[in-house]
Amino acid sequence: MSKQPIKRITSIKEIAQLAGCSIATVSNTLNNKGRISQEVREKVLEICEKHGYVPNSAGRNLRRQTMETVGLLFYPSTSAIFRNIFYAEIMEALEATMESRGYDLLLSGFDSSVADQHTPRFIRQGKVDGIILLGGFPRSEVRKLLGFSLPLLHLDSYRERIKIDYITTDGYAACGQIVDHLVNLGHRRIVFMAHAHEDTNADQREAGFLAAVNRHDLPKTLNPSMRDFYRTDDGYERLKPLLLGKRPPTAVICVNDTLAVELLEKLKDDGFSIPRDLTIFGYNDDRHSRSSSPPISTVKVDKAGLGRIGAETIINRIQNPETSVSSVLLPVELVHRGSEAPPKA
């Protein structure tokens, strides 16, 4: 005889009948309110799970004037997030934590690079309780979104003098540590490279590099920062004359692993041997940095931590809008791989 399927329940009245308690008790249990005994609470939740009951949030949201939904934007286009392995890993933890807290994450087809692009519809129509800005948003875009008076979180970046919650990594300290390590290996001619985009993370990593150069009394002319290019091809064309000069750099610190891997391939194509001719350091510990040949030394970032803390922070801001602004710098650690070596004698 075949086993009868468990009936799916769609109302708290049915839950109350099975649990032998009032509808109010079930409602308070599901909303984590009131004084409900542990025994009754566990019984109600067990019945809900057994019968596949999912609370209808529409009425609850109407009473609370919330949507239990957070919008996510990525600059310049949200669609680009699916091509970025670094942010894809952050997204996994972000989404999982939001789900565990009963919130949905809503992505928009917003494209900031289009001049006449309207603000995302989910913001204009009030469909979200807050917004996560993932990555390096220009200051003008952040200020524009502030005008909607919604809780904002800047995740993996921030903008100075704009008072919103942010979480990022300590790039200043990390790049200082890289310089310290390279100097200990014997390097005295080191280049920092980052794209020319407006990017506070790049600013902080560059500042950490320059401070360490000064701390070690390294000649600034032989330890430059290069941030005057938008494409990696152009950056490499700027670097190559230095490499062919009389006093070439012996190490390059890249603002991220994407730039490091792309430079590595161009250097190899031109006959350079890594790390014999040049040490390369990246940042982020992306999958590509581990699979490149040679694997690239880099800075390990707690991507899961960024996503998890980001979710907790925006939810806390939604539920407690008067709390003080949260500014979090996550610590990082250097990862040493095959792209580094002492300089040639």
Rank of each mutant, 00 (worst) to 15 (best):
S11W: 07
Q17Y: 13
C21L: 08
A24R: 10
N28W: 09
I36C: 01
E39C: 07
V44L: 08
L45K: 03
I47C: 00
C48Q: 01
H51V: 05
Y53G: 03
N56A: 09
S57E: 13
G59A: 15
R63E: 11
V70I: 15
G71I: 04
L72K: 12
S79A: 15
F86T: 12
F86K: 09
Y87K: 10
A96D: 06
T97R: 08
S100E: 14
A115H: 12
Q117G: 07
Q117H: 09
Q117T: 10
P120F: 04
I123D: 02
Q125I: 02
G130V: 08
G130A: 12
E141S: 06
R143Q: 12
H154R: 03
Y158P: 03
T169A: 12
D170M: 07
L185W: 01
I190H: 06
F192W: 05
F192P: 04
D199A: 13
D199Y: 04
N201S: 03
Q204D: 14
A211D: 00
A212S: 10
A212H: 04
K220W: 05
R231V: 11
D233P: 10
Y236C: 09
Y236K: 11
L242M: 15
C254K: 04
D257F: 01
E265W: 14
G271H: 12
R276P: 04
T279C: 08
I280W: 02
R287F: 14
R290W: 01
S293T: 15
P294S: 06
E312F: 13
I318D: 05
T323E: 14
L330H: 10
K344P: 02
